[in-house]
């Protein structure tokens, strides 16, 4: 079934099935952390998660119908936002903690050992608190994640060729499906029409904060790489370079 013919319920169940499995860092933690060891753990985990993120994106109905160039650009634009939203979701029931993985949990104070990371931890914790206040539901979370992916590149790209225009139109229709799905998920919560509208507004406004934290995080990681605190390699290097060069 094409996504345009799917009900919002079907669409959500497809993106719920696309959710990546839980991932473990599987490293022996040498506590206390050093600046380098914490950055290495964070980047090792990010690199593993990125591989799963590509498979996740491909399972979002309609994503692989976009041009390959669009698929690449979208993922390169949003990967850190997606990682951060996943982190917020895992941390939502653990105030004051960031649950990077089941075997890698950090307190705000542990950010002290990496220069400049506490500011980012605080922004992540603040956005997580907002999601906690809003009692974010799993259905809403998966919709927001798909929205981040599909929205990430919309305002930086003007299609020129017929192929680009076609892919752009597909992208816009796909965003329609995701918005419909989020609206449907909110409608299931037993709220008044006005409360539903407000909730949609509050949830989508949080995405601008996530973009902001992601930009801060991208600058931080590229600084850490430049200062040789951490060795960035493989897929993570490719994704970081796309944002910094």
């Amino acid at each position: 079934v094409h996504h345009s013919a799917m009900s919002p319920e079907e669409f959500i169940s497809r993106i719920m099935e696309a959710e990546p499995p839980e991932i473990y860092l599987m490293e022996d933690m040498n506590k206390p952390f050093t600046e380098s060891s914490m950055m290495m753990s964070l980047t090792n985990l990010a690199d593993k998660e990125l591989v799963l993120m590509i498979s996740w994106a491909k399972k979002i109905p309609g994503f692989v119908e976009l041009s390959l160039a669009d698929q690449i650009h979208l993922l390169k634009c949003c990967w850190l936002e997606i990682l951060m939203l996943g982190l917020m979701w895992r941390s939502v029931d653990h105030p004051g903690k960031l649950i990077f993985s089941p075997d890698f949990k950090l307190n705000r104070e542990e950010g002290q050992c990496v220069e400049g990371i506490m500011e980012i931890f605080d922004m992540l914790l603040a956005a997580t608190s907002r999601f906690r206040e809003l009692k974010l539901q799993r259905e809403e979370y998966v919709c927001l994640k798909a929205m981040i992916l599909l929205n990430s590149y919309l305002c930086t790209n003007s299609p020129e060729t017929a192929e680009e225009l076609e892919s752009r139109n597909k992208l816009l229709r796909l965003l329609d499906s995701v918005i419909d799905a989020l609206v449907w998920a909110i409608s299931k919560l037993g709220l008044t029409t006005q409360q539903q509208t407000l909730r949609l507004g509050h949830l989508t406004m949080l995405l601008s904060h996530i973009r902001h934290v992601s930009n801060k995080g991208m600058d931080h990681l590229s600084t850490m790489k430049r200062k040789n605190v951490v060795l960035v390699y493989d897929l993570l290097l490719e994704m970081l370079d796309a944002n910094t060069t």
């Binding site: 590509i54 498979s55 491909k58 390959l68 690449i72 993922l75 390169k76 493989d234 897929l235 490719e238």
Partner: peptide, 13 residues
């Protein structure tokens, strides 16, 4: 071929 391109173009298992 980049790793991203490679992952995007491989068929799902």
């Amino acid at each position: 071929h980049t790793k991203l391109l490679q992952l995007l173009t491989t068929k799902p298992e």
